[in-house]
Every structure is written in structure tokens, then in C-alpha cells.
């Protein structure tokens, strides 16, 4: 077991994704955007609510994607950042009477700081060790939220009830529909900002670290700074998603943010394609709808059906939705030539 393994060339945990392959073309983007804007006009409130959740989880998966696909660090602790964001929003709204829209930047900033600080000790760790550290964070968070000291603000095990905002300016919209468009606007803004971030100098630094840390530091990339920064940005976006989630579900409780959530977000990233930002929404759809489908096929065996479906996806497309997109693109290219 203690084999003499003096020299190991470690393969990068996350394969290199060229930065242009991280986004969609303009045409496709517009079609997706139009679909996202128009669909709620024709469906029931419950489906609108589900679409809102789709966007919110999409944001959280996107955040993980920036961390893992961008900077090559791995996290099983996203549920903790999500919880901090959700609680920040809920506490500010219910105890301080703050406007819901204003709580989101605060949630984002607090989570950014939290993630940035957590990134400091995480610097020393990589691979499974980092996974364990973030996992520890995720298991600790629900217990911390239940602590007696904070009960006055967090509501302890009971959690907090959040009021759902009405549409402003007397717009003739249901609360669900307003919240959907509100979420959509924030999602689009964050998506565009993320794409730009990954195209910027910082984004290139993230990717250099992901592909080869030693080479990156030799070229003058401040590895420690950019690694913690990636953690901070990822946590910040997750925090905004958490805040939106609290407003959409109208309720926060410690048991809503367990390790199961972190694992779901991770699965969403893998299914969507690691390092491919538009895949986040596909992954989010997978983690929201597939458990329901599995339940529909068989109540007693829903876990097994979910597992089998997940296996099918990773067998057919090990690189997730990104692979599907690439295949589709090639097919369209061929059709155009003929």
C-alpha cells in the first residue's frame, strides 16, 4: 500500500474547457430567453412557482460551476452558503422590515465574505480533502442554525415565515408571476456578469489555476488570492439564490438546507456539464423534476428509479448537457452544408 510513488503527475480534476465553449451563441440565447419570458403567460401559478425554483437552483448550480468548472475547486458545502443567504434575507425582511429586493445584495455580500474567509483554510486542501472540509461545513450549518443563542433571530428549529411580495406599481400580475419575472431579471444579470467574469483577467486566472496550478503561479497569478476569490464569488451568488429561494418558498428552516441540497446542486452541475454555464439551467431542471418523475413511476422505488435515470444520463452523456449541445451544433453544421 505504501508503494514507492515518488513522482506523480496529477491529472487536473476538472478537464479544461476553453472559455468560448462556456457560453451559448447569440441566436440560441435569444430563443431560450424568449421561451423563459413567454411561458409564464400561458401556464398555471404552480408551474410558474416551479419555474421560479428552476431559475433559483439554476443560479446556485451556476455558482458551483464557477467554482468547480472555473477554478477547479470542489465544494460539497454550497448548501451552507445557500442557507446563510436565505436566513439573511428572511431575518432582514421579518425583523428589520427591509424591502425584499434590498435584502438580496446584503445576502450576496455577507455570503461573499463568508465564502472568502472559508476559502482561506481551504487553500491548503485539494481534491477529496477539500470535499471533506466543505462537507463538514454543510453538515454543521443546520445544527448551527438551530443553536439556542441565535434562536431569537433564526426562530430555532421552527424557522421563520417570510411574506411573499406583491407586484409593485399596481401591475396586474399574480404574486407568483411577479416573483418569477423578478427572479428572471436577477438570473439574467448574474448570468451575464458571470460570463463576463470568466472572460476577464480574473476568469483567465481561475482557469489557469484549474488547468495547472504550478504553471499559473509561475506566470504570476496570485494563486491564493484567486482561489479564495473564486470561493467568495461562488458563495455570493449562492447567497443571492438562497435569498430568492427564501422569498419564493416563504419559509426558512434549518432542515431545508442539509447536505442533501449540496449533493443535489453537485448532481445538477454534473448533469448540466462541468464548466458550461448554460448547462446550469438543464442541471437545475434535472434535480427539480427527475425526483418527481421517479416518484410518479414507482412510489416505493423512487430512489432506485432516480438512481437508474442518473446512471442513464451519465452513461449516455458523461460530459452532461454540454455534450448534447456540441453534438447538436455539429448536426446543424452538417445540415447547413448539405
Amino acid at each position: 500500500m505504501s508503494a514507492a510513488e515518488e513522482v506523480v503527475t496529477e491529472a487536473a480534476a476538472v478537464e479544461a474547457v476553453p472559455k468560448r465553449a462556456m457560453t451559448l451563441g447569440y441566436g440560441t440565447s435569444l430563443v431560450v430567453l424568449a421561451a423563459l419570458i413567454l411561458t409564464p403567460l400561458f401556464v398555471k401559478n404552480f408551474i410558474i412557482f416551479q419555474m421560479t425554483m428552476l431559475l433559483i437552483y439554476g443560479l446556485a448550480v451556476l455558482a458551483l460551476n464557477i467554482l468547480t468548472g472555473g477554478s477547479g475547486q470542489f465544494s460539497l458545502g454550497q448548501s451552507a452558503f445557500y442557507a446563510v443567504g436565505a436566513y439573511t434575507s428572511a431575518i432582514l425582511m421579518e425583523h428589520a422590515g427591509m424591502n425584499y429586493a434590498l435584502t438580496l445584495p446584503v445576502a450576496g455580500l455577507i455570503c461573499f465574505g463568508f465564502g472568502f474567509l472559508f476559502g482561506q483554510p481551504a487553500l491548503r486542501l485539494s481534491g477529496v480533502y477539500l470535499a471533506l472540509a466543505t462537507f463538514a461545513l454543510a453538515t454543521a450549518m443546520p445544527q448551527l442554525l438551530k443553536l439556542g443563542y441565535f434562536e431569537h433571530w433564526t426562530g430555532g428549529v421552527q424557522g421563520l415565515v417570510v411574506t411573499k411580495p406583491d407586484a409593485p406599481f399596481g401591475l396586474p400580475m399574480s404574486q407568483d408571476m411577479w416573483l418569477y419575472y423578478f427572479t428572471l431579471a436577477i438570473t439574467i444579470a448574474i448570468y451575464i456578469a458571470s460570463v463576463n467574469l470568466l472572460r476577464s483577467r480574473s476568469g483567465r486566472a481561475f482557469m489557469a489555476i484549474r488547468d495547472n496550478e504550478i504553471a499559473a503561479s509561475a506566470m504570476g497569478v496570485d494563486v491564493a488570492l484567486y482561489k479564495t476569490l473564486a470561493f467568495g464569488v461562488s458563495a455570493g451568488i449562492t447567497g443571492v439564490a438562497g435569498g430568492l429561494g427564501a422569498i419564493a418558498v416563504q419559509f426558512v428552516a434549518p432542515d431545508g438546507y442539509t447536505i442533501t441540497l449540496a449533493i443535489s446542486l453537485f448532481l445538477g452541475m454534473v448533469v448540466g456539464g462541468v464548466g458550461w454555464l448554460p448547462g446550469s439551467i438543464v442541471g437545475s431542471a434535472f434535480i427539480i423534476f427527475v425526483p418527481n418523475i421517479a416518484e410518479g413511476i414507482s412510489k416505493g422505488l423512487s430512489g432506485a428509479v432516480f438512481g437508474v435515470l442518473l446512471f442513464l444520463v451519465i452513461f449516455l452523456v458523461p460530459h452532461g448537457a454540454r455534450q448534447v449541445a456540441i453534438i447538436a451544433q455539429q448536426l446543424i453544421g452538417k445540415l447547413k452544408k448539405n
Binding site: A13, V14, E15, T68, F74, I263, F266, L267, M269, V270, V271, V274, G300, L301, S302, G303, A304, V305, F306, G307, V308, L310, F311, I314, F315, P318, H319, G320
Partner: peptide, 30 residues
């Protein structure tokens, strides 16, 4: 299950473990 995934990215393998977890747990429960 895992030999076909030998060439797939590491994170995909981890997703496979989670799938296996769900399957075994649910079958044993049944």
C-alpha cells in the same frame, strides 16, 4: 457500472456513486 465510466471525468464518477447509493438504499427499503 463503473468500468464503462473509467474514461469519464472524475466528477461524473462521483455522480455515479450517488446514483448507486440511491438505488441500493431504495431497493433494500423495498
Amino acid at each position: 457500472l463503473f468500468k464503462p465510466l473509467a474514461k469519464a471525468p472524475i466528477l461524473t464518477n462521483v455522480a455515479g456513486f450517488i446514483a448507486l447509493y440511491a438505488i441500493i438504499n431504495s431497493v433494500a427499503g423495498l
